[in-house]
Write a protein that binds this DNA or RNA. Structure first.
Length: 106
DNA sequence: CCATTGACGGAAC
DNA sequence: TGTTCCGCCAATG
């Protein structure tokens, strides 16, 4: 089980209309400082993975030149944006599906 | 095989 | 409050 695969499984669990951060995912996998790896994993993300639900800690989206549709897809799911052009984290930050995560951990 | 880079993030300045 | 630096690890040259 590679680290990347674990990332994909977590990302796949992000509910529609909510977003998770790279660092948050890294923390869930026990690698608090490997946010970059999560980013790299997204770059290699297989089709079918809701990688558009993964954003920066500040709510900023990925560069448009590598992922132009991210914003459009989030809007389609009901995600709102601030005037700064960032995701409204206060409304859409994913709890991490904490309860389910606990169950899985056990 | 070694050096550099990258969809990041937090600490240090 | 804003910029810089370091860590982390796979991929690429």
């Amino acid at each position: 089980m590679s680290f990347f695969v674990e990332i994909y499984q977590v990302v796949a669990r992000i509910p529609a209309g909510q977003v998770a951060t790279y660092g948050q995912i890294a923390i869930m996998l026990g690698r608090p400082r490997s946010a970059r790896l999560v980013g790299w994993a997204m770059h290699q993300a297989p089709s079918g993975l809701p990688c558009h639900r993964v954003v920066k800690r500040d709510g900023q989206l990925a560069p448009t030149d590598v992922f132009p549709e991210q914003r459009h897809r989030l809007v389609a799911e009901g995600v709102t944006f601030t005037t700064d052009g960032r995701v409204d984290m206060d409304r859409h930050c994913w709890s991490g599906d904490y309860e389910a995560n606990e169950a899985k951990d056990k």
